[in-house]
Design a protein around this nucleic acid. Structure first.
Lengths: 230, 230
DNA sequence: CATTTGATATATGTAGGACATATCTACAAT
DNA sequence: ATTGTAGATATGTCCTACATATATCAAATG
């Protein structure tokens, strides 16, 4: 067997640390044993003993699970399984500067997709009061000439309000996290183009129009972004 | 001031551990200093020294960042900033059994929203070859009477293929993670209802129909789910 | 000279001990 | 019944020590 063959066949051996292993072990254990939120876990020392590793390693693994919100620890009472904040970990990682361009583009498209898919839930839950607030936001922008910063904030406020109107807390938080990405990708544009359908147009559709009209309106509103996709 | 007022005003004091603080400190530091992927970090000992904490605490914080994929460590070379896998942390936490019902519902709606918003990107990127594969999946189900497990797997395969056709890797992985949630919520249904528009209908629309027709078709396909929303 | 081998220093990975701190339990004091 | 005290226990933090992998450089080998 030639040397190159050997090199090709031999992949790098696993470089997982004990903390990695223990973390996975613990998560599998919790899953397999059908632990429910509120259930108590063994103490760190017991875990270390059972797994045959030092308390240090166990603590690193537990520290990760704690960050994810999967467990909570109290001083003498020990640790209990908890319901994690599923978006919390997401938030920590969502920094445009450290995400690769391909993923940034993916996220940009993800938000466009969400925006286009909102109509049904929006029409299910929209309330007069919310539409009035949305209108106020749209109109506050109408004057124009308020500067770039104002324009961006207003854009964020308008679309954020729409998400809020869906009554879906997770969806709203999710889009809020995507905002920096969206802003970053847009900031790369040379000429900021604006769709034919304005915010006020969308509000008017929301007031009197149908879901289908709203979808068409949103598509037109986002058209400049869609046009740039490949 | 009444006693109840006092109790209401006094929240529990912060219980953040040093590891929590250091983790945040490090993330802020990396952000503020505009660290880019590939940049080297100080050694654990230097960090511990600079922050005035033990190496143990620093290691717990670093262990978290490592789990998120924000940093990579090599034995002697030290640590370097890295581009995190933004969905990796998500994956760990997405277990239907430990997520509260309200969030489960939110995620269910999130997936419906995505599905309804896919049309534009799908029509931008769909290829004959993919449609053929999609058709094969749809037809393999047509026979019927293949049992519950087959039906569910086929459902997953069909919708998964649609996401894959968007060419958006992140979107596809994202929906893949949402599958267990979706499956779980659906499994709670007593009578599994099926929309008027079938998979094969959707394929046919993809072949000859417009984006708008596809959206309408998808809405009909998902109708039973939408009907249950409040 | 080029390549390989070997030695050394260094940063991370792991172990184990020590002590502080918070809090649950139980019991005593008022 | 509330408050105070004491002991037990699990976590939080620090420290030391050593194993391990690897970048760097020197030495050896052809």
């Amino acid at each position: 067997m030639a040397k190159t063959d050997l090199i090709k066949d031999l992949g790098p051996i696993s470089q997982r640390t004990m903390a990695d292993v223990v973390e996975k072990e613990l998560r599998d254990y919790l899953k397999k044993k059908l632990f429910k939120p509120g259930d108590a876990l063994p103490s760190e020392l017991e875990l270390a003993d059972a797994l045959g590793v030092s308390r240090n390693v166990v603590r690193e693994a537990l520290s990760r699970l704690r960050m994810l919100g999967m467990i909570e620890t109290k001083k003498r009472r020990g640790m209990i399984l908890s319901t994690p904040d599923i978006l919390g970990s997401f938030e920590r990682v969502l920094d445009p500067l450290i995400i690769d361009d391909s993923t940034l583009q993916d996220i940009f498209e993800l938000r466009l997709t969400l925006e286009m898919g909102l109509a049904d839930i929006l029409y299910l839950r929209k309330k007069k009061k919310d539409i009035a607030e949305l209108e106020a936001i749209a109109k506050s922008q109408d004057g124009g000439g308020k500067g770039q910063a104002f324009r961006i904030n207003n854009e964020i406020a308008f679309h954020g309000k729409i998400y809020q109107m869906t009554g879906n807390e997770t969806l709203m938080r999710f889009q809020n996290m995507l905002l920096p990405i969206f802003g970053y990708v847009i900031s790369l544009e040379k000429v900021p183009q604006i769709g034919k359908v304005s915010h006020i147009d969308l509000v008017n559709i929301l007031k009197d129009g149908t879901k289908e009209e709203f979808r068409e309106g949103m598509l037109e509103h986002l058209k400049p972004h869609f046009n740039k996709l490949k």
